[in-house]
Design a protein around this nucleic acid. Structure first.
Length: 558
RNA sequence: GUCCCGGUAGCUCAGGGGAUAGAGCAACAGCCUUCUAAGCUGUCGGUCGCAGGUUCGAUUCCUGCUCGGGACACCA
């Protein structure tokens, strides 16, 4: 168990002091007492903390908020809660100006905890599985996949930091109709590689990746596949295609710094009769019927707008059926929480997937997060992203053009709920405007100062007198550093990893402001220099940690 | 028609039951004999899509409407 950090301790004390004051002033009795809500005002003139308690009590105490506020203020024990002064403002806010000496404890805490600073216990060791990307192995990863990869990976990192046990999984759709289409597509491209005039079938994959693959096979194996019987040849292409494309996907993800713990094969479900098992399980529970030669799942019993086919009248499963078996498997593995990250084009499956889980009698521990569309703009025009037109921009191209750091930062910076316009021209030509450089520069700047401090024989390891850190920009920086655990907590529990880049940008901004306002290394004032160097080291630790969470490097020089 | 996401500054977007709604970019004006100017400081810029409702208080929550994007196969 983690102990309360310094900021939490101070807030806790303040809340208690307010509660006691309200009771002492007879404004409410114990069970009427509203929860104390503390906020940190945006405007510094409104103090370090503010509470709306007086407004909340207006109805209970039947008095105007400002009068209530005055009574509360009279009763607050300032000393016990480290309060320097109190003001009443606006419609009845009570603003607290704290004795900010507590803030310097943040620096010592960061020194003690190092990269563990910011860890919280929100997860309490809960087992969480996050399944993401899971692109079909019928082509290479494109822009949309990159967004899901960045979001999922960062969410996993943040939740881990918040005390969850996270497992990352990729579901490989290596069975089903799309793999047959893949084999057919390779077949045509392979024949074309030998100059044969063969038409692409209707649902084929027309991307450059398949052409490349076919050419590669032609080069490596010569004409030998042409000698085979069609069924044998297609089977070979199916395996070659799968292996090659899956390998490609793995490489791309690795380059994008996205690791997975488990690669789950759809085929393994068939090998163990899990798919039939899932249909049987649904049937036993009475949610399966037959009609028009097909087998149906009565998902309308669970809020879906129509029933769904499980087995087509040609005897094949639909996409949904193995997916139900897969989710049955996931849930049976004993996770406390299962998170799926899907692209917006799959949102229509949310209801039926959740329906299936309910129909199977499982508790609803599935949370499906949707990442909205990414629109790519190039030369002022929207580029279509269809895999089948072959015009998609691949994740790898994007990385090569703008780099992993910028790409990841861009994707994670935005809420997953918002559509994203990715302007290639802007990313290419003006990448220096990218906020990621701003943050990285802050880190590099600190490293530079630390190097210089060493050259000038500043004793970096001395125990500094942190109470010297009282300048305005120092206090801003200290407060921001103190916010970090709270940011982690919200980003993890609300599954909003975009809070991290926002935070680290603000932190970098505080650092740059401080840097311009105060001189850190002053050989005539070693005590202050040591205190400031300590502050710089603490800031560096947090910037690096936050950047690590979003998968961006923290350079020591730029 | 049904469902999902969005509508906040000129642009790209944060935020979110409370006090004067924020940032970056763009525009304008300053700051390098001083630890990296990839930086800092300031100015300009808003009916938070519209209309009701809940509330002491709504840009935030609820309902309806509207605009934009997407999804609605016995494809995957």
């Amino acid at each position: 168990m983690l102990e309360l950090n310094v900021v939490e301790q101070v807030e806790q004390q303040l809340k208690q002091a307010i509660e006691q004051a309200v009771l002492a002033a007879n404004l409410a009795n114990q069970d009427e007492l509203p929860e104390v809500i503390l906020e940190t005002p945006k405007d510094k003139n409104h103090g370090d903390y503010a509470t709306n308690m007086a407004m909340q009590l207006a109805r209970i105490a039947k008095k105007p908020p400002r009068a209530i506020a005055e009574e509360i203020v009279k009763q607050v024990n300032q000393e016990e809660a480290s309060i320097k002064s109190i003001e009443i403002a606006g419609p009845g806010f009570i603003n607290f100006f704290m004795d900010t000496s507590y803030l310097t404890d943040v620096v010592s805490t960061i020194f003690e905890q190092g990269k563990h600073y910011g860890e919280t216990n929100d997860g309490g060791g809960e087992q969480v599985q996050i399944e993401f990307v899971s692109a079909n192995p019928t082509g290479t990863l494109h822009l949309g996949h990159a967004r899901g990869a960045a979001y999922g990976d960062t969410l996993a990192n943040v939740m881990t930091k918040a005390g969850y046990e996270v497992e990352r999984e990729y579901y490989i759709n290596d069975a089903g109709n799309q793999i047959d289409q893949l084999a057919l597509s390779i077949d045509v491209r392979y024949a074309q590689a030998f100059g044969e005039d063969k038409e692409m079938p209707e649902n084929s994959y027309r991307g450059q990746d398949i052409i490349d693959l076919a050419n590669q096979l032609a080069e490596e194996y010569g004409r030998q596949f042409l000698e085979m019987q069609e069924s044998e040849r297609l089977a070979a292409f199916r395996e070659h295609g799968l292996n090659h494309l899956l390998e490609q996907i793995k490489q791309d993800l690795e380059a994008f710094r996205v690791p997975f713990d488990t690669w789950f094969s759809e085929r393994s479900l068939y090998d163990e009769n899990r798919v039939t098992g899932a249909v049987d399980a649904l049937r036993e529970r009475g949610y399966v019927y037959e009609s028009e030669g097909a087998v149906w799942f009565r998902s309308t019993d669970f809020g879906d707008d129509k029933d769904r086919v499980l087995v087509k009248n040609d005897g094949n499963y639909t996409y949904l059926t193995p997916d139900i078996a897969y989710h049955q498997d996931k849930i049976s593995r004993g996770f406390d929480q299962v998170i799926n990250i899907w692209g917006a084009d799959h949102h229509g499956y949310v209801t039926r997937m959740k329906a299936a889980i309910q129909a199977l009698g499982y508790e609803d521990l599935l949370d499906i997060k949707i990442t909205q569309m990414v629109n790519l703009f190039e030369n002022g025009e929207k580029v279509k992203m269809s895999k089948r037109t072959g015009k998609a921009v691949m994740m790898k191209e994007l990385i090569d053009e703008v780099g992993v750091d910028a790409t990841r930062y861009f994707f994670i910076m935005r809420s997953n709920d918002a559509h994203l316009d990715f302007d290639m021209d802007l990313a290419r030509s003006e990448s220096n405007d990218n906020p990621v450089y701003y943050v990285q520069y802050a880190h590099a700047r600190i490293c530079s100062m630390l190097r210089q401090a060493e050259e000038k024989d500043v004793d970096i390891d001395a125990t500094p007198d942190l109470s010297l850190l009282t300048a305005e920009k120092e206090v801003d920086l200290l407060k921001r550093l103190g916010d970090y655990p709270q940011v982690i907590s919200e980003a993890a529990t609300r599954k909003m990893p975009h809070r991290i880049p926002q935070y680290v940008f603000d932190l970098a901004s505080d650092l740059h402001s401080f840097y311009n306002a105060e001189k850190v290394i002053d050989t005539d004032n070693m005590e202050l220099t040591q205190a400031r160097i300590a502050l710089m080291q603490a800031t560096r630790v947090v910037i690096e940690d936050a950047l690590n969470l979003i998968g961006v490097h923290a350079p020591e020089k730029m």
